[in-house]
Design a protein around this nucleic acid. Sequence first.
DNA 1: GCGGGTCTTTTTGCATGCAAACGACCGGTA
DNA 2: TACCGGTCGTTTGCATGCAAAAAGACCCGC
Lengths: 223, 223
Amino acid sequence: MASAQITIAGTSAERVYDDLRAAIIGGEYAPGERLRAEALAARFGTSRTPVREALMLLEGDGLVEIEPRRGAVVRSFDPADLVDLYEVRALLEARAAGLAAARIAPADLALLEATCERVEGLTGNGARTIDTLIATNEDFHRILIEAAGSPRLSAALRTVAGIPRPFKTVFWNDASARARSLAAHREIIAGLRAGSSDRAESAMRLHVLNARDFLTEVMRERD
Amino acid sequence: MASAQITIAGTSAERVYDDLRAAIIGGEYAPGERLRAEALAARFGTSRTPVREALMLLEGDGLVEIEPRRGAVVRSFDPADLVDLYEVRALLEARAAGLAAARIAPADLALLEATCERVEGLTGNGARTIDTLIATNEDFHRILIEAAGSPRLSAALRTVAGIPRPFKTVFWNDASARARSLAAHREIIAGLRAGSSDRAESAMRLHVLNARDFLTEVMRERD
DNA sequence: GCGGGTCTTTTTGCATGCAAACGACCGGTA
DNA sequence: TACCGGTCGTTTGCATGCAAAAAGACCCGC
């Protein structure tokens, strides 16, 4: 069964890493915004040293860009990069689903089903609902990735894990996107339960590529 | 055309990162060996701060393990982990080859061919020859990955990039493995030149999975 | 009003001091 | 002998000082 979390927040740098990562993904810092070490240190009640370390880790996650002697900025996601990101994610998560189909524990399968039921219970459009939808969706993907049992795949996925919240918000605000996402999750679960790697893999690939297309479409309309 | 190197070694931490990475991959530090910050700082003529940063980056690359308050050790590669690593690499590099087939520049194609010719010219079994073989092989894969034109794919591959030198040495000491590797590279190049994504992708997957099987076999014999 | 150059301010990157945690060692006890 | 608790040296992790570089403010000439 997949464990809930790996890090027990041992060092201060890890805590800053987790919190800052959440803040960036949560949209608290806008893409392109400068991240000054001193200000972050004050915010997190620590000094610049752990902040620097957290920023370097976030650079590895593709959430922050660091230029020597010029500091760190929140990474901007242009359409081409988002497409690139989602295609790599499709590749890796599809594999994860395929691996998981062969070995997932019943307990994890139940957890995945629980996420679907939680999503079904959410019908509103309030900020609180969107928050829960985003969190539950992340639960689904995290549980599945861990169920794949491939540490290297998990590590590779960390490089394409996070995109800023505004992108997710438009997605989860769209009723049809929401419905299709739920259906896709159910399809993936069906593949997993049947032990069919092909089916789980294909369903996941389709699911992620649909998200890619949705975002592409949204960004095209914005121009 | 793919550029030779990304980093211009701006900060001290990056220099330590590059050099220490090379030292670990080069087998200078044995798996399981402890990496004390002070000693490394002395070696690289700097202080512990940039060393710490480099170690955290190397942890992201899967070359080093850091336990809070207990320090860093060179990561050990057990058979299961090597298989995991190579399978993720197969997935990612196969995709890279497929992407490259559709867009590689003639200049890069020429560079790839040049690596094959260099390998063909090497017939001995001396340490110097092995060094060149390893370096040339890495050139081939690096050029191809950059030719794929997917920054996110490159980033993901960094998490499965390095394995310690001893593993590579046994591979390149084996004449038949060497010959098959060269043939595989030529096959991949043929796919690229034909603009056939399928062919390049399949050839690359086969190539990487063959390496996986070779190493698996070697390790099985050792027990 | 605008561009170029200089000076000030801010911010980064590195070195180092220091407290706390870890582990090795050692003596005592069952 | 095997095991347990205390002590000490070592090493980590964080805070901070400082030099150097970048960003920004300012002024001047045009």
